[in-house]
């Protein structure tokens, strides 16, 4: 916590997480919530046995995993978006720049069509996220002119390619069950999140987020230009590949857990840059907290606004796009 703003965001995040625990179709009165907490933490008098089991199940098996997933996904997308913006010296890029989201979506859809195994779907999602990014880097390597620009173009090509492949899968999928499954998946949703998934992805996501955040200083210098960075003693290639690897890892994992959740990785770093400035050493931690907070609140909205749940990807887009249009005017200060 280098700056008060980080402390503030972290506190808000804790409050929002606790608050989100109380939200849901099944009403858990604050009284029960406190009683359960009192029993768990301080060993006070317990609730009625059956009720305690029910409340515990709702809180710890249903709501808590989803809350953790929302926060981690929000933080991951925001941090990798922020890191990519510095790496590519362009505040308008998003984590999907190198094709990771298109690749991961294709991977998921492919496995859904070919197999019924959920594990295989997840593996394929992760794998093709990396394949798409590798493809983009490969294209850049072949031409090796100005590497950053070639990387961006490679990413565009890779993204378009995997989007086309995804269309083929959709076209050939069984329209009665497979196609809807794929389409819903691509809209993004956290409704399938359970304890098992969260316990598997938490560690890699946290590690990835931290590794990227700790590259803040290097990213600052890289965003001044490749040669300047090199003359300041930075191993440009290594830093670039490390950041791309971990950003790809955490982005592909978000698709694995929640499908396509757009716009977070673009808007959150923007908002944070307006608040804390462009220095990545303070910016990246701020985007992590802000992204977590944002997606947590959006998920609350998407599961509570109507009696049915709206896919979270739709909500992030609906809120993100107009917001982005509004901040664009002020955003120049942070990067021009």
């Amino acid at each position: 916590m280098k700056k008060p703003v980080h402390f503030l965001l972290a506190s808000l995040l804790v409050v929002a997480a606790l608050f989100s625990l109380t939200l849901g179709q099944y009403h858990v009165p604050i009284k029960d919530f406190l009683a359960l907490a009192g029993w768990r933490i301080f060993g006070l008098e317990q609730l009625h046995q059956e009720k305690a089991a029910l409340v515990k199940n709702i809180l710890f098996n249903i709501r808590l995993p989803r809350i953790i997933a929302a926060m981690l996904i929000g933080a991951s997308l925001s941090v990798s978006g922020g890191a990519f913006q510095a790496l590519f010296i362009n505040p308008l890029v998003s984590p999907g720049l190198l094709g990771v989201l298109a690749g991961a979506s294709f991977g998921a859809a492919l496995a859904m069509v070919l197999s019924k195994s959920w594990a295989l779907v997840q593996l394929s999602t992760l794998l093709f996220g990396f394949v798409a990014v590798g493809f983009a880097i490969g294209i850049a390597k072949v031409y090796r002119i100005h590497s950053v620009i070639m990387l961006v173009l490679g990413g565009i090509i890779s993204g378009a390619f995997f989007t086309a492949l995804l269309s083929i899968i959709k076209y050939t999928a069984d329209p009665s069950d497979q196609l809807p499954a794929i389409v819903y998946w691509l809209m993004g949703s956290l409704s399938a999140v359970d304890r098992g998934t969260v316990s598997i992805i938490s560690a890699p996501l946290l590690i990835g987020i931290l590794v990227v955040i700790f590259h803040g200083r290097q990213l600052n210098i890289l965003s001044m230009g490749e040669e300047e960075a090199q003359s300041l003693g930075i191993n440009v290639r290594r830093v670039r590949l490390t950041v791309i690897f971990f950003a790809t890892l955490i982005s592909a994992l978000t698709v694995m857990v929640g499908g396509m959740i757009g716009w977070v990785g673009l808007i959150i770093p923007h908002i944070c840059r307006m608040i804390v400035g462009p220095n990545n050493q303070t910016l990246l931690p701020a985007t992590a907290f802000m992204g977590a907070l944002y997606l947590l609140l959006i998920d609350d909205i998407s599961r509570l606004l109507f009696t049915f749940e709206i896919p979270i990807g739709i909500v992030t887009s609906l809120i993100g796009i107009p917001f982005f249009a509004l901040v664009l005017k002020n955003a120049q200060r942070g990067w021009r």
Partner: peptide, 20 residues
């Protein structure tokens, strides 16, 4: 001189010199 960078403060830029 270049202009394409982010709007780091002058101090941020000078501090980059401590990288090595």
């Amino acid at each position: 001189i270049h202009r394409e960078a982010f709007a780091y403060t002058v101090e941020d830029v000078v501090l980059m010199g401590r990288m090595p």
